[in-house]
Write a protein that binds this DNA or RNA. Structure first.
Lengths: 336, 336
DNA sequence: TTGAAAGCGATACCAA
DNA sequence: TTGGTATCGCTTTCAA
C-alpha cells in the first residue's frame, strides 16, 4: 500500500502558526476580522505545509457541495456534449462545479446514477434527455432540484426544457416543398421515442397541408444512427421507390443516408436532396454541407444550468423560449 | 429559500428501529453479525425513512472517495470523448465513479481543475493530453496518483501513456507512397504542439526514405481543426501547387481539406487522395470514407483507468503497448 | 480579536 | 451480539 502524500489539516496549520483552528478558518473564508500578525503567520504556515482545505469536510459541514450533477445518456454524442458545454459555460464563475455521469442509454443505469449523485449530496441535477420517465424524474425532484432537457415537466423543484420537435419537422418539410419536392422519403427515428414520433407526425401533417398524398412506402425505419440511415436508403432503393428528397430524422441518419447514396453513385443534391435534424457541429463540414433543422442544444444546456441555480436558491425561474431554426446549406436542390 | 427534502441519518434510522447507530452501520456494510430481529427492524426503518447513506460523510471517514477525477481538455471533441468511454468501461463494477472536469484547453484552467479534484479528495486522476507540462504533472503526482495520456512520464505515482506519433506518420506516408504518390502535401497541426512536430518529422523522413525530394512549398500550416484544413487547401490551390495526395495532420483537418476540394470541384480520391490521422468515429461515414491512422483512444482510456486503479492500490503496473494502425478506406487512389 | 467546543453523518474500536 | 463514543476535517456559535 503506497502511502498518500500527507495533507495538512486546519489543526496542523493552526498549530504551526500558533493560533486556533477557528482563526485559520476565519482567514480562509474571510468570515471575520483577524489581526494582521496572525494572518501573516497563518498564511506562512499554509504555504509551508502546502495546505488545501478538504472539500469533503467543508461540504459535509455546510450541507452544500457546490456541485451540480449532470446525467447524460452518452458522453460521446455531439448532441449531448454541446449541451455539456452550455452547462459548463453557465457554471463558470458561480462557484459550482459540474459532476458528469453517464447513463449509457439504459434507464436502470440512469436511475443508479441519479441515486449516486443524490448520495453525493450534489446541490441539484441536470438530466439531458435519456430514458427516465417524467414521473420518475418528478419523484427524484422531491428529493433534489432537477432540470431536465427533452422532458415535459413543471413542478415545484423540477423543470423541463423542450423544443417543439413537431414544429421542427414541419419547417424541414416546408422547406423541401417550397423547393419543389413532392416525393419525399422519411427515415424515422428510434421506435417508441417521443421525438421520433413528433417528427413523423410533422412529416405527415406537412404533406397533408401541401395536398401531397402520404405514401407509407416512403417511410422507413431508422435508429438515429448512421447505420440506420444506410440501411434505410438501401431498402428504399432496392424497392425501386421514386423520390427526389430524403428527410432524415436526425443528422447522424442523414450522414448514413448520404453515404449509401454515394455508394450507388447517386449525387447529393443533384439527384437526391437530403435534409437532416439537429445541426451537429460536423454538419457544416460534410460534403455537401447539410441543410438541417438546428436544435439550440448549447443554449439549452446553458439555460438548464442557469435555471437549476435559481431552483437551488429557491428563486422563481422564467425559462426563455428557445426556437428551432432552419439552416440552409447545400444538400437541398431547388427543383423549380 | 426552499428547504431540501429532509434526508434521514443513521441516527434517525437507529432511533426509529430502536437500536444504536453502530448496529445500523453494521447492517449497512455487512461488517458484523447482527440478530435477525434487529436486522428486520432496521431494514424496515430504512425503507420507511427512505434513508440513503451520505457519501460525503462516508468518504470523509474512510479517507477514500471511491472517485477518480478525469481532466479532459474538451468535452466535445470525439477524440477525447472516446477515451472517456474507455475510462468508464474500465470503471464499471469497480465501485469507482468518474468525476469529469474540463480544462477548455487552457493550462491555467487545467491546473485549477486538478487542484479542485485534489481538494475533493478523489483517489486518483486521469489526465487526457492537454497543455500541462510533464513537470507540472509530476509535481501533482507527489500528492495523488496520476495517469496521463499523451505525456511521457514514469515516476512513482505517475504514468504516461503515449502513441508513437512519428511512426504513425511514417505509416501514413508509406501507404501513400506505395500507392504511387510522389507529390504529397502536408497540412501541419498546431504550431508548437508535440504531436504535430512528430508527425511532420515522420512526413519528412518518409519522403527521404523513399528518395523523394522534400518541397517546403507543399507543407502548409493547419490548426487541427476543420477551418485550418480549408484554409490550407485554398492556399495550396491558389499557389498552383501540384500534388496528387494530401496528408492531413488529423481527421478534423482532413474533413476541412475535403470540403475545400469539393468546393473547387476537385474529386476525392479521383483527382486528389486524402489521408487523415486519428480515425474519429465519423471517419467511417464521411464521403468518401476516410483512409487514416487509427489511434486506439478508447483502449488508451481503458488502460489509463485500469493502471490508475493499480497505482491507487499501490500495485505495480505493466502498461500494454498500444499500436497505431493504418485503416484503409476509400479516400486514397492507387496510381499504379 | 480570539479560542474552546459542538456538530455535520458515518464508522470502528472498546467494552459489556 | 450490541451500544457508547471518539474520530475524519471543517465551520460556527458562544464566551472570554
Amino acid at each position: 500500500m503506497t502511502e498518500n502524500a500527507p495533507t495538512a489539516t486546519v489543526h496542523e496549520v493552526a498549530h504551526a502558526a500558533g493560533v486556533s483552528p477557528a482563526t485559520v478558518s476565519r482567514i480562509l473564508n474571510g468570515s471575520a476580522r483577524v489581526s494582521d500578525a496572525k494572518r501573516r503567520a497563518v498564511e506562512q504556515a499554509i504555504a509551508q505545509l502546502n495546505y488545501r482545505p478538504n472539500l469533503l469536510a467543508q461540504s459535509l459541514k455546510s450541507g452544500r457541495a457546490m456541485t451540480i450533477g449532470i446525467l447524460t445518456p452518452d458522453v460521446v454524442s455531439p448532441f449531448f456534449t454541446e449541451s455539456l458545454r452550455g452547462i459548463e459555460a453557465a457554471l463558470v464563475g458561480t462557484g459550482y462545479a459540474p459532476l458528469i455521469v453517464s447513463g449509457h442509454w439504459r434507464p436502470d443505469e440512469e436511475s443508479n446514477r441519479v441515486e449516486l449523485l443524490i448520495a453525493r449530496r450534489v446541490d441539484g441535477i441536470v438530466i439531458l434527455s435519456g430514458g427516465l420517465t417524467e414521473s420518475q424524474i418528478a419523484s427524484y425532484a422531491q428529493r433534489i432540484p432537477i432540470v431536465a432537457t427533452g422532458h415535459q415537466l413543471r413542478a415545484n423543484r423540477a423543470l423541463g426544457i423542450t423544443f417543439d420537435q413537431y414544429q421542427g419537422a414541419r419547417m424541414a418539410m416546408q422547406h423541401l416543398i417550397e423547393m419543389g419536392h413532392q416525393r419525399i422519403a422519411f427515415i424515422a427515428g428510434l421506435v417508441g421515442h417521443g421525438d421520433a414520433k413528433a417528427r413523423l407526425q410533422g412529416y405527415e401533417d406537412a404533406l397533408a397541408a401541401a395536398g401531397i398524398a402520404f405514401d407509407p412506402q416512403l417511410v422507413v425505419q431508422g435508429n438515429f444512427l448512421e447505420n440506420g440511415g444506410i440501411l434505410a436508403v438501401n431498402l428504399l432503393l432496392e424497392a425501386h421507390q421514386q423520390f427526389s428528397a430524403i428527410f432524415a430524422a436526425n443528422d447522424h441518419t442523414a450522414y448514413g443516408a448520404r453515404l449509401a447514396l454515394y455508394r450507388r453513385g447517386i449525387r447529393v443534391p443533384e439527384d437526391v436532396s437530403v435534409i437532416g435534424f439537429d445541426d451537429l457541429p460536423a454538419s457544416s463540414y460534410v460534403t455537401p454541407p447539410l441543410t438541417t433543422i438546428r436544435q439550440p442544444v448549447f443554449e439549452a444546456g446553458r439555460v438548464a444550468a442557469q435555471s437549476l441555480l435559481h431552483l437551488i436558491r429557491g428563486e422563481s425561474v422564467a425559462v426563455p423560449s428557445l426556437a428551432l431554426e432552419l439552416i440552409v446549406r447545400e444538400s437541398v436542390k431547388c427543383l423549380r
